[in-house]
Amino acid sequence: MPITLTIPDGYGYSVLIALGVIPFLAFGQGSVVGTLRKAAKVPYPNAYATAEQAKNSKEAYKFNCAQRAHGNLLENMPQAIAMLLFAGLFYPQATPILGVTWVLGRVVYAYGYITSNKPDGRGRTYGGFFYLGQLGLIVLSVSAALKML
């Protein structure tokens, strides 16, 4: 059954977040990782400082936290982008709001992970509200898919 696709007014906000803001966030976090790698003296191709290095060096620990925050972003980024682009077709007002919630949560997550003095990187929990944005995008995407059936 063919479906006619009409791009709604305001859809550009979803596209801007998905294809502009989120890749910029990934680039920014990658740059932070690179800067902290140099300070921690962790050579390539090592992805992380060893447990011993992280225990003995605050710089190595911060590098590991930044690297993990960036890795977590990269793990969640593809589906967030896909959901923004898809759900935005059916919900052009709600989708960008959830996208901004996701992005702000990711920023706070990374900042808390890297700068907090809480043990085991628990400062990341401050940004855990990104999951609300992600859950909302899942709900809107499923709802949009059901509308297409």
Results as ranks from 00 to 15, higher is better:
A49Q: 06
A51F: 10
A51Y: 14
Q53P: 13
Q53D: 15
Q53N: 12
N56V: 12
S57F: 05
F63V: 06
C65A: 03
C65T: 06
A66R: 10
A66Q: 09
Q67M: 08
R68V: 14
A69M: 04
H70C: 06
N72T: 05
L73S: 09
L74I: 12
L74T: 08
E75G: 06
P78Q: 04
P78H: 05
A80L: 10
A80G: 11
I81T: 06
A82Q: 10
M83F: 04
L84H: 00
L84K: 00
L85G: 00
L85H: 05
F86R: 01
A87H: 04
A87N: 14
G88Y: 01
L89A: 00
L89P: 01
L89T: 00
Y91H: 05
Q93P: 04
A94C: 12
A94Q: 13
P96T: 00
P96K: 00
I97N: 07
L98M: 06
G99A: 07
G99V: 00
V100C: 11
T101G: 06
T101H: 12
W102S: 06
V103T: 13
V103I: 14
L104C: 10
G105L: 14
V108M: 07
V108P: 03
V108Q: 12
V108L: 09
Y109F: 07
A110M: 08
Y111Q: 09
Y111P: 13
Y111S: 15
Y113S: 03
T115S: 10
N117E: 05
N117C: 13
P119R: 09
P119V: 03
G121W: 06
G121S: 03
R122E: 13
R122N: 12
G123S: 02
R124Y: 10
R124F: 07
T125H: 11
T125V: 12
G127E: 09
G127I: 03
F129Y: 12
F130C: 06
Y131V: 15
L135K: 14
L135I: 15
G136Q: 09
G136F: 04
L137T: 04
L137W: 02
L137M: 09
I138K: 07
V139S: 09
L140Q: 01
L140A: 02
L140I: 01
L140R: 00
S141R: 08
V142W: 14
V142C: 14
V142H: 14
S143D: 11
A144S: 11
A145K: 15
L146V: 10
K147Y: 01
M148K: 09
M148D: 15
M148L: 14
